[in-house]
């Protein structure tokens, strides 16, 4: 059967090609930034997103090889009550984050200038500048690359889900029956592997853009050096009298959402829950730890001063 070219598919193809060209130039700048050891970031213009889910399907296709292939039946886990998490029979779920779906479209119906409007928002890992998932992983299986991308090494992860608990958006998702824990103590430690968006780090290393950016027919996303992208985000926000999310959240991220509607308003209307992250303000998760780290520098000085004071007092008593 012949493939009919409709006006819509032609326009979509043209826009995709234009988007690819724009994305390629931005990835060239991103590559240059990486060469200089700088972080790369993404700007997501919510006002452009039409919720077509092209990015979602492109993500699934590009990352299919990384998805879990669990062994069944799952080993029994102790104590009883430790639950297996199995998404292998629900790989087609795309309305939330799962181990088989690292990007989904969230929708928000809002009143804008007296009109009811539906906004669609691509949601995935924010790639924090100081990611708690990476910093607090007890095994070093979550890592941050020099270009700011955080990813989970499926060969090392034991699936304890600590990364999910410490993530302000609860992004990583677990699949049981896969990974290193099967070779260690599957009954007593570990529960699979955690999965999340890795910003197509392998494609970026090859000089390509992430699949979601390449596939977007509306040029919703722009990738490039963080400083440059942040500047663009501010310009865009100023041009639409809009708002930015991701610049200060959790101490800063490498994803900047720009919206014509305030994010607290969006957060109040989006569906939130498991695999469906919020859009609320987030304080810096690692901030307390960073302050206490400074105290560690003072501790040895305090120790020396204490011992010297004791020595002085004893010498005084003796004399």
């Amino acid at each position: 059967m012949g493939h009919a070219i409709t006006r819509r598919s032609f326009l979509k193809g043209t826009l995709t090609a234009a988007g690819s060209i724009a994305a390629t130039s931005s990835v060239a700048r991103a590559a240059a930034a990486m060469d200089k050891g700088e972080a790369i970031a993404t700007l997501i213009d919510i006002s452009k997103c039409v919720g077509c889910e092209e990015c979602v399907h492109a993500c699934k296709e590009a990352n299919a090889d990384k998805y879990p292939k669990p062994q069944k039946p799952f080993p029994k886990m102790y104590p009883k009550g430790v639950k297996a998490e199995d998404w292998s029979d629900k790989t087609d779920v795309i309305d939330r984050l799962t181990p088989y779906n690292w990007l989904y479209i969230q929708s928000a119906t809002v009143d804008m200038n007296g009109e009811t409007k539906e906004l669609t928002i691509p949601r995935r890992c924010m790639h924090c500048t100081n990611p708690p998932c990476v910093k607090l992983c007890p095994w070093g299986s979550a890592i941050q690359l020099d270009n700011g991308i955080s990813r989970i090494d499926a060969d090392i992860c034991l699936g304890g889900a600590k990364c999910q608990t410490v993530c302000p958006w609860l992004i990583p998702q677990r699949q049981t029956g896969v990974g290193l824990y099967l070779d260690i103590l599957p009954a007593f430690a570990g529960n699979g592997v955690m999965y999340k968006c890795d910003r197509c780090y392998n494609r970026i290393a090859e000089g390509k853009v992430p699949a979601c950016i390449e596939a977007c027919p509306e040029n919703v996303q722009t990738i490039g050096p963080r400083d440059e992208i942040l500047k663009q985000a501010h310009e865009l926000a100023a041009s639409m009298n809009g708002y930015i999310y991701g610049e200060n959240e959790n101490g800063g991220t490498n994803t900047f959402y720009v919206s014509p509607v305030p994010f607290d308003k969006l957060n109040s209307v989006i569906e939130k829950g498991k695999g469906k992250p919020h859009l609320a303000a987030v304080s810096e998760s690692m901030g307390t730890g960073d302050k206490l780290a400074m105290a560690m520098l003072i501790a040895p000085i305090a120790g020396v001063v204490g011992a010297a004071a004791r020595f002085y007092n004893m010498s005084k008593k003796e004399s």
Binding site: G289, L292, A293, A295, A299, A307, A308, F311
Partner: peptide, 21 residues
């Protein structure tokens, strides 16, 4: 972190105190 601060401070104190006294 807090108990690590105490451990570092105390360990330094004991080492320096031993050397001095």
């Amino acid at each position: 972190y807090i108990f690590a601060v105490i451990l570092i401070g105390l360990s330094t104190y004991i080492c320096v105190d031993y050397i001095l006294n």
